[in-house]
């Protein structure tokens, strides 16, 4: 059920594993740990898992820094209060789109537990962790602008 979504670490292009360039006809098939980005032909290893369950349980709510270069995170890996711009969606994308949540828009993660709540424009949406995992965002640069400012930085 769980749909994977890959993001090229070189060009930031998001794609589903079936779209990976080498997926068709390669004799190695599923034994190969590498995928090739359909946009720039860069070959890379799929993202490692998100840590063990107890790290997720006890984690302070920060993203596990899997690898420093990774540009894309899923929304539930953000810290509460952080704002980031959406890179890509997968799964039932239109359900999110009707709330105005589409790639390019800035969203703020308001809370992570017991369910994720994100703010899109003036809409607050409560979502399952499963949906949140399928919303990929660009890693916000540096620490959040206002640690307490739950509404994020709206700009003038």
């Amino acid at each position: 059920m769980a749909e994977r979504y890959l993001t090229c670490p070189l060009c930031g292009f998001g794609f589903e594993p079936e779209d990976a360039l080498c997926a068709h006809g390669c004799p190695l098939r599923s034994h190969c740990a590498l995928v090739r980005c359909p946009a720039c032909d860069y070959e890379f290893a799929e993202q490692p898992g998100r840590g063990s369950w107890w790290r997720r349980l006890l984690g302070s709510g920060t993203a596990e820094a899997t690898d420093g270069e990774c540009e894309a995170l899923s929304v539930d890996q953000l810290r509460a209060g952080q704002t980031a711009s959406v890179l890509s969606l997968s799964g039932s994308r239109n359900k999110l789109a009707v709330f105005g949540l589409v790639p390019g828009i800035e969203i703020t993660l308001l809370q992570r537990r017991p369910a994720c709540v994100v703010q899109v424009g003036e809409t607050e949406l409560a979502l399952d962790r499963e949906i949140a995992r399928r919303i990929l965002v660009r890693r916000p640069g540096g620490p959040p602008a206002e640690p307490e400012g739950i509404l994020g930085t709206g700009g003038g």
Binding site: G91, K95, F99, A115, E124, L125, A126, L127, D128, I131
Partner: peptide, 9 residues
């Protein structure tokens, strides 16, 4: 279905 709910102010 997946949980997706708009929270009013």
């Amino acid at each position: 279905s997946e949980f997706l709910l708009e929270i009013p102010p």
